[in-house]
Nucleic acid binder design. Sequence first.
DNA 1: GCCAACGTTGGC
DNA 2: GCCAACGTTGGC
Length: 156
Amino acid sequence: MRHWLLKSEPDEFSIDDLAAAKGRKVAWFGVRNYQARNYMRDEMQVGDPAFFYHSSCPEPGIAGIVEVSKAAFPDATQFDAASKYHDPKATRAAPRWFNVEVRLVEKTRLVPLAELRADPALATLRILQRGNRLSITPVEPAEWSRICRLAGSRAR
DNA sequence: GCCAACGTTGGC
DNA sequence: GCCAACGTTGGC
C-alpha cells in the first residue's frame, strides 16, 4: 500500500463537491500528464489512502483524506468532444488517459501550504520541492502520519 | 498579473 | 534525437 497526494482546484472540484457526490465517490478525471497517469494506471491500488489538496486558490492546502475505491479505467472525458479534457488522439480501442475512482474518507481542517512548508518533518514532501507541478505524487509513510497529525485526523 | 519551472510539440 | 518555442501550472 502506498500513500498519495491528489491536487484539485476547488473552483473545478472541491472537497465539498466530493462530499456532495453520489456515494461520496468520483472518478479522478482530467489528468493529462503522463507521469501522473502512470501513477494511477500502474501503481495506485484499491484501498490506498490519499490527501485531497486544494491548489490554485486563495487558501491552498490539505483539505481532507480520500481512498482509492476503484482501480484505473479509461477517463471518459477524453472521448467527449464537448469536454475541455477531450483528446482527439484517443480512441476507445486505444485510450490514452486513465483515472482511478476515489471515495471521501474524511474532510479535515484545512492545513495551509505555509504550515506544511514550515514543518521540518515535511521538508521532503514532493509538492514542496522547487518547481514541482505534478498533480499526483506519492507521500512517504512518515509524511503521511505527520500530516494526519497536523490535520487532526485519526487516520494513520 | 507576474514569473519560474516544467512538459509537450514539431521542425530539422 | 535535438532543441527552441510554446503552453500550463501554481504560488505569490
